[in-house]
Design a protein around this nucleic acid. Structure first.
Lengths: 362, 362
DNA sequence: GGATATTGGGAAAGCGCATTCCCACTGCCT
DNA sequence: AGGCAGTGGGAATGCGCTTTCCCAATATCC
């Protein structure tokens, strides 16, 4: 027993498929009240569900919005996904998910798959990269996106634009002021302390990471401080942990010598910061007593951590929503949505040391 | 410039659309080498991308797998989603996402939408409910699912089956032994302590919550302990926090009186447990000194919490994967995948108190 | 060597729907 | 009363692809 079709409904209602189509799905022409009612009843009794594929074929638009993330289980992307999902609901669309681990070529595949499904728009979250080895992949991705746009697709990219992507129309970027915010974070951290700064960054070439590093260094510089050391590692909790281990060793080594300053560690995202903190803790170090730690993103799930993590709040959900609706086409507010802003949030993890005093409760 | 079609490719290659279709998309009949090559080149040069909608229409199957969750930003669901996504990739399908906040009627809508898109299968995560007010919604949902199954769809439900759903074929349930595991948790907790137990549960009628509560009580009973009080609240961090506040008051009140036992709080999921812990902490209480806390799920992102949360590990990703592949149709291992198991993990949050004078108890 | 398999490609009929025409009909104006 | 616009419904076409069915050409057999 296959699903019933429009034609069946029409027959049952004693009208033509055309009329049935007009009443059941939005159309400029609305048939007479009585007929409409008849059709509606027929549809109801048959449990008619329009075939979205056929509709899509006929209208050449699918009601789909594609979302590309590195990893849906990463709270950063999950938050963005929620925003996208939200926007999708408003637009009466569904979201199609693709996870790519950040590999440009699998992102390209995802775009092609979305294009094949005639997704109305595509949202690409997840940081772009400028590594040499990704160059080819990026170019192909850009080409694929370009083609998609030329065929009438809309794309919303979060963070940085795709390297090499033409400024086609239908191509929007939701800018995230990573650099500025990181600078601000550095400034605020530098204001109240005299410490050695260290940055735990992602792999070189990752824009999000590089921007935050650059911003942080700039902030340090403008506070008259020397540039911080940068440790490159994976853009994950594991990477943060690893770096944390190295830093713990460094702290331990400097302990006996001259009165070393406390370390202030800036990890370029919260998850890495948590990893680093865990590593320090595993080596018997305490935060913020033995080292200060700050992150970036203000991941919701991580807010209950102790010591509470200093970080930069990013309206992740709003970012996702904006990306999805900017790609939805020139809505009413073509002036564009307000630019994304974030804010530095200093919490306990970077409190200035109370030399040998009792620790206060958070 | 619209996307190029199969027909165009065929024309360019000087063959019929039928042949082009046969070489470009899998078919039983594989055309001759030379022809195939010609077609492939034509497709390449035109940047041909098959229209999945049209394919779907013609084949009546879409390569889509629908996923229904309460909230994609909830780490529990995000983990499951990752598993589903994984399985989808293996099946060369894409996942279509719907979030419903757990409302049966919007789940029904989601199912309808998936059915409209001719999703090959649907995975429903998120706990079912047996509340009276949801009865109607559940019935409708069941009916919708039933219809979907009758039309050839496959559904995989995580946890409990849908209330009222017929045991249609194509309908699979990935059972999660919530009750057993909760019982085991209670047993292990009860073994090493003499405390008052309290359960922070979700709203009445939520299966996942109810099962875990029941199991925990059973475990307590089999250890010869009285049933624990149950506080009903939201199935979220906020709910946990609220309950935690109430419990903090209770602890504070009992302090001055007779030598009250320490409280051991079992929250029916990790997020709630974290909320409760935060609440206790906000009232100046320490864990595990002033109260023990345990959760359920072993959410990855939460593993770095301190004190480390005792909980029950659930292979969330595997659960999602299994749900997605059980719904994929009777694969090779029709014997079914191995049943889901979990394991109790005792960490610091439930360590037995060191009453500062008495010796530590075994 | 002629007849029967077998192969490889094309023609055409849908899949389920939207939509453009087209037509019959009603109501209105002069 | 005749002609006109306006209204409401139906027939037919096409969206892009798959897939049967069919046919020509080659291979196989006694």
């Amino acid at each position: 027993m296959a699903a019933s079709t429009l034609t069946e409904v029409a027959r049952l209602a004693g009208v033509s498929p055309a009329t049935a189509s007009r009443v059941l799905n939005g159309s400029a022409r609305i048939p007479g009240k009585d007929i409409a009612e008849r059709v509606r009843q027929a549809a109801e009794s048959l449990g008619y569900i329009p075939n979205a594929q056929a509709q899509g074929l006929a209208k050449s638009s699918s009601g789909l919005i594609g979302l590309i993330v590195h990893d849906i289980a990463d709270p950063y992307f999950a938050a963005i996904a929620r925003g996208v999902q939200d926007a999708a609901r408003e637009q009466h669309k569904m979201v199609l998910l693709a996870t790519t681990e950040g590999a440009p070529d699998s992102e390209k595949e995802a775009v092609a798959a979305f294009a094949a499904r005639r997704a109305d728009s595509i949202v690409i979250a997840g940081s772009r990269t400028s590594r040499a080895e990704d160059l080819g992949g990026n170019t192909e991705l850009a080409a694929e996106l370009d083609r998609y746009c030329r065929n009438g697709g809309h794309v919303g990219v979060i963070g940085h634009g795709i390297v090499g992507a033409a400024a086609a129309d239908g191509y929007h970027v939701v800018r995230v002021p990573n650099e500025e915010l990181a600078a601000q974070l550095a400034t605020e951290l530098a204001a109240s302390r005299e410490e050695d700064f260290v940055i735990v960054g992602g792999p070189e070439g990752l824009f999000t990471s590089d921007d935050r590093i650059r911003g942080f260094q700039r902030g340090l510089a403008s506070a008259g401080l020397p540039a911080a050391d940068v440790i490159r590692t994976h853009f994950t909790r594991a990477g943060g942990f690893e770096a944390g281990l190295a830093l713990a060793a460094r702290i331990a080594a400097s302990q006996p010598g001259t009165e070393a300053k406390r370390l202030c560690i800036f990890a370029v995202n919260d998850v890495m910061a948590i990893g680093a903190a865990a590593a320090l803790r595993s080596q018997g170090l305490r935060i913020p007593r033995d080292a200060a730690v700050a992150g970036f993103d203000d991941i919701e799930t991580l807010r209950d951590f102790r010591p509470a993590l200093s970080t930069v709040h990013l309206p992740l959900e709003e970012i996702g929503r904006q990306a999805a609706s900017s790609a939805a086409g020139p809505s009413a507010d073509d002036a564009g949505s307000p630019p994304i802003t974030g804010q530095v949030i200093l919490r306990r993890s970077t409190e200035v040391a109370h030399p040998s005093s009792t620790e206060s409760v958070a």
